[in-house]
Design a protein around this nucleic acid. Sequence first.
DNA 1: GCCTATTAGTTTGATATCAAACTAAATACA
DNA 2: TGTATTTAGTTTGATATCAAACTAATAGGC
Lengths: 140, 140
Amino acid sequence: METRDVISLISKIREKVNRFIVAELAENGLEGIGTSHGDIIYALLRTPRLTMAEISQRIHKDKSTVTALVDKLVRLGYVVKERDQVDARVVYVALTGKGRELESLFEAVSQDMLNVFYRNVSEQEQQELLRILEKIHRNF
Amino acid sequence: METRDVISLISKIREKVNRFIVAELAENGLEGIGTSHGDIIYALLRTPRLTMAEISQRIHKDKSTVTALVDKLVRLGYVVKERDQVDARVVYVALTGKGRELESLFEAVSQDMLNVFYRNVSEQEQQELLRILEKIHRNF
DNA sequence: GCCTATTAGTTTGATATCAAACTAAATACA
DNA sequence: TGTATTTAGTTTGATATCAAACTAATAGGC
């Protein structure tokens, strides 16, 4: 009944999804990789080269946060940073070989998560959920 | 179409809700109060006295995090900590007068947020949303 | 072609958060 | 009753995150 509960539910579900993903990554040897690092790798699997600013927009994190996150991924050997030859202000980020190797793992984890997430949720309910959430998102 | 989008939407909505609340609180003079502090105050408006462990459960944060959050609220004068006379391990937290004064503001902010959140969302859609999200939450 | 404004990214300082180690107190059990 | 275990909370150390200040480089107007 309490419609306020929905806010709480949304927070809890988000938290569960994050824990699920981080735990699955850790089980597969990716210790110390949080969801934001995962988001960056995920984005780079789709788009091979992104600037710091583009990553910031994609993952909805402050540019200074992105500096820290990407630097950690560089330290771990998953990505490299390279300055643009034309505009020396711009830094490109790209996956290394070690980074690209994560693709199948990421696909698997993503699929596992969706399987859990949508268990016993019909196709129609999924569509309905997406429709209502999009409406709410546009309200802000 | 992309059902994966729902996860992203949930994160974004949660983020918007948090920003909305923190901004409204700040506009009303509650600078430096984050959503977790708000959650603690909110819980104490409902239940006048809570232990640290109970707060930890209510707001889904580690007990060490709660120590830090409550200590900040003590510093700001909104709550007091008091040891149980019977079981000296237990610490009770309760609102001060200054803390209780926040009640009407919290009610107003909460109402404002819900008004924005559910704008153009029918009663039936709200029920449907709650039902589906509860199902998903039980999946984890 | 200069000075100014804008832009991309980094650095710095502060806070939230967690997990692990720790402390102190209560409980169990032998 | 005395030791071992459990429990409640704090401390410590690490990381993520943001905002503001900063740096370096490009772009714009005169």
